[in-house]
Design a protein around this nucleic acid. Structure first.
Length: 743
DNA sequence: GTTCTAGAAC
DNA sequence: GTTCTAGAAC
């Protein structure tokens, strides 16, 4: 049974019909459609359940063609599947709201009579309530389609499915849509004047897709092989560790497919000591598993006799690491699914620093298997890698590795080199080597976590679109900007000379680019041909100037507070009623990417200062709600913490970038940043430019809006509660969450 | 970061 | 004709 999930206009009926009509391998499909089941009257869920049950009992496969956007709406169908012992899949048609609405609005003769203006209202309302399907609901397989290409793939997959074939379990579907501008309001306007029928939106293209022929269906035996293989390993580990049983039962089921397969880093060509490496792997894995539930890591090596595998197994057992969530696996990392039967959505590549194909071992294998599209995709994310870092690359769906193995992302990792014949030889310095190897794994795992987070969703509080945009995790901090300096120690930024000659004269000058002398730019950013790791335009230096010489701006009423460690400044272009910055005064601490463990005390004090000011503002206006956080990739040099009220009522908030920089994952809550640094020494700036170009959504109710003015008029009145992840995390400061009496 | 403006969208 | 966005310049 396939439960289709999608709003009106997302193409559910078209999907089901395409599969049913194109079914080439003898499987018979029945479409259970709530719109038609009532024979003219409105259909009900009960009728659908009955029809589905009948069809299944007769040996048919069934599509449940109703919106099914909410968990509750799907539950009975999942239950029915369990009763009848059939697999229940979810196929989510997660297209941009704009497309669904335009289709729903402009279609004629719709089965359920949902067309014209009222469709727009219905779709927008529905999209706000949707819960992404989860494996925990009882689905054996979840597939998410984000564009017509995905849909075509899914149609092909199902229509070539023979009567006894089955599809691998897990979660599939890459979410990497480009920015989408949603033109919703025009349809909503039409909703008022009924009977609008002209078609102005994008055309439905699903109809054009013909079921394909070339689909290499995963074979059932492989899936079984996977289980027996994995179980063997798990059993081995289990036996050794006895019944420690510390892992919570339910956790592992959540995202069973959220699996990362990774090779041992640095131990092959880079000749890193195996004993030390295995310690580091086990340590880092243990930490990571503790931090995240429902994530699975698999260490892969080609050879059965692999020394690193046995060392790791042994140490993992000793540490009582949950063997369901971490185990070793013998096989080719590029053929885990087809040859080994192990489904992994993400694989790591032991990359070279140039991120280029070739060499040998895992890198060559991964590039070979993935085809050219991996090179292109990689290029978009980073030019080079330094030891101890990683970069996540969304694998295009055309890649054979994606199609055949179900791999949605490749994370390139570069470990330290202990081989004198290779570049950046560490000369047996295991203090540094170990540190770098640890960093490499941490970075790898964190990148993986971001992918999982963005794909699985923070349960249901986020919209699919938002998830998609942050899905292609390619942290800016790993985007290495200097090809020649790929050793981390050499990556330190060139410190700007701050002389009186090039320092602006006053705060207003510092805050406006036009008055900053031109030589500042040249003097700061270039020195004898060495390009700094981030080029800060002259206008971007203002906060830095202020942080270095706050006394110059003493008299400005923009400065609220100055200490040795930070300056508190009213943002010159506030994006909300209250918007202040706590600017660190530490030279060289340019942005979040530079922050390390040693800065934790500073970060905590900046946070406290921010809280203090938020509190002060709340005394004046108890209706405000504050959020404290950093921009993933700030435009202004010098680490600064934003304290911003969530009304976003400001004339200075003018464009999409402004909005998205405060309301998407681009904004990193101070509390989260501190926690991350405590736990693994650096902050993930897991965000790329895509999130900034994302469709505009209300930060409270997540509704989509076509442009800034419309968004603003919406947020002026939106009284929805904030998304649960913010409430749960305690990221919001309001008069009700603070002790206003000072206790 | 902002401002300016061409041209797209309405 | 007016509104709005996005890209370039600063």
């Amino acid at each position: 049974m396939v439960v289709l999930v999608g709003p009106p206009g997302s193409g559910k009926s078209t999907f089901a019909e395409a599969v049913a009509d194109g079914s080439t391998a003898g499987r018979h499909w029945v479409r259970v459609c709530q719109d038609t089941i009532g024979n003219g009257k409105a259909g009900t869920k009960i009728q659908c359940l009955k029809a589905a049950s009948d069809a299944l009992k007769e040996g048919n496969s069934v599509f449940i063609d109703r919106c099914n956007l909410e968990r509750e709406q799907r539950a009975d169908f999942v239950k029915l599947g369990a009763t009848l012992h059939v697999d229940v899949h979810a196929v989510t048609l997660d297209l941009p709201a704009k497309i669904c609405i335009s289709r729903a609005v402009s279609r004629k003769g719709h089965e359920g009579n949902l067309q014209g203006g009222k469709a727009a209202l219905v779709v927008n309302r529905m999209l706000q309530k949707k819960d992404a399907p989860l494996l925990t609901e009882g689905f054996s397989r979840i597939m998410s389609c984000n564009d017509d290409g995905d849909i075509k793939k899914a149609v092909d997959l199902y229509s070539t499915l023979g009567p006894s074939d089955s599809l691998p379990s897990g979660v599939f579907g890459q979410k990497s849509k480009g920015p989408v501008q949603v033109g919703i309001m025009k349809f909503l306007k039409k909703a008022d004047s009924t009977g609008v029928e002209e078609s102005s939106g994008p055309k439905l293209t699903l109809g054009e897709t013909k079921p394909g022929q070339q689909n290499p269906l995963p074979k059932q035996e492989n899936v079984e092989a996977m289980f027996s293989r994995a179980m063997e390993v798990e059993k081995g580990l289990n036996d050794k560790k006895k019944n420690e049983g510390h892992a919570k039962e339910s956790d592992c089921y959540d995202d069973g497919s959220c699996t990362l397969a990774f090779p041992s880093i640095s131990t092959a060509d880079f000749q890193f000591d195996l004993d030390r490496a295995s310690d580091i792997i086990v340590d880092t894995v243990a930490n990571f598993l503790q931090k995240y539930d429902s994530i699975r890591l698999v260490l892969v090596d080609l050879s059965k006799k692999s020394r690193i595998l046995s060392l790791v197994e042994e140490k993992a057992a000793k540490k009582s690491i949950d063997s369901r969530r971490f185990f070793t696996f013998v096989g080719d990392i590029t053929q885990l699914h087809t040859k080994g039967g192990l489904q992994c959505s993400v694989i790591a590549n032991a990359a070279n620093w140039r991120l280029k194909p070739g060499g040998g071992g895992v890198n060559a294998a991964v590039y070979n298997a993935a085809g050219e599209s991996l090179q292109h995709a990689t290029k978009k994310c980073a030019d080079a890698l330094r030891p101890g870092t990683s970069v996540a690359v969304p694998l295009p769906s055309i890649s054979p590795l994606h199609q055949r193995e179900g791999v949605t992302h490749v994370i390139h990792v570069l470990g330290p080199n202990m081989n004198p014949m290779r570049p950046d030889y560490l000369n047996n310095d295991y203090t540094r080597g170990s540190k770098l190897l640890h960093e490499a794994y941490s970075s790898l795992f964190e990148n993986f976590a971001s992918i999982v987070r963005s794909h699985m969703g923070k349960v249901n509080s986020e919209s699919g679109t938002e998830k998609s945009a942050s899905g292609g995790t390619s942290p800016k901090d790993t985007k290495v900007k200097r090809e020649d300096n790929h050793v981390s120690e050499r990556m330190k930024k060139y410190k700007l000379p701050c002389t009186k000659a090039n320092a602006p004269n006053g705060l207003d000058n510092a805050m406006t680019s036009s008055a900053v002398p031109n030589q500042t730019k040249q003097g700061n950013n270039k020195k004898s041909g060495v390009v700094t790791s981030k080029t800060w335009g002259s206008w971007a230096q203002a906060l830095y100037e202020l942080a270095m010489n706050p006394e110059k701006y003493k008299n400005s009423d923009s400065i609220l507070e100055t200490s040795d460690e930070f300056v508190v400044l009213k943002d010159l272009y506030p994006k909300a009623k209250r918007h202040v910055l706590v600017i660190s005064r530490m030279d060289g601490l340019d942005s979040l990417a530079d922050v390390k463990k040693e800065h934790l005390p500073l970060l905590r004090r900046m946070h406290s200062a921010g809280v203090k000011w938020a509190q002060k503002f709340l005394e004046e206006d108890a209706d405000l709600v504050f959020r404290l956080g950093y921009h993933s990739v700030p435009s202004m040099r010098q680490l600064h913490l934003h304290i911003i009220s969530q009304d976003f009522n400001s004339a200075s908030l003018k464009n999409k970038k402004h909005w998205n920089s405060f309301t998407t994952s681009f904004f990193r809550d101070s509390v989260d940043v501190i926690e991350e640094i405590e736990q693994h020494g650096s902050a993930t700036t897991s965000s790329d430019e895509k999130v900034l170009a994302m469709e505009l959504r209300c930060h409270r109710c997540r509704s989509a809006h076509p442009n800034i003015p419309k968004l603003k008029s919406h947020i002026a009145n939106c009284k929805s509660s904030f998304p649960s992840h913010l409430l749960q995390k305690n990221s919001l400061l309001s008069s009700s969450t603070m002790h206003m009496d000072g206790t």
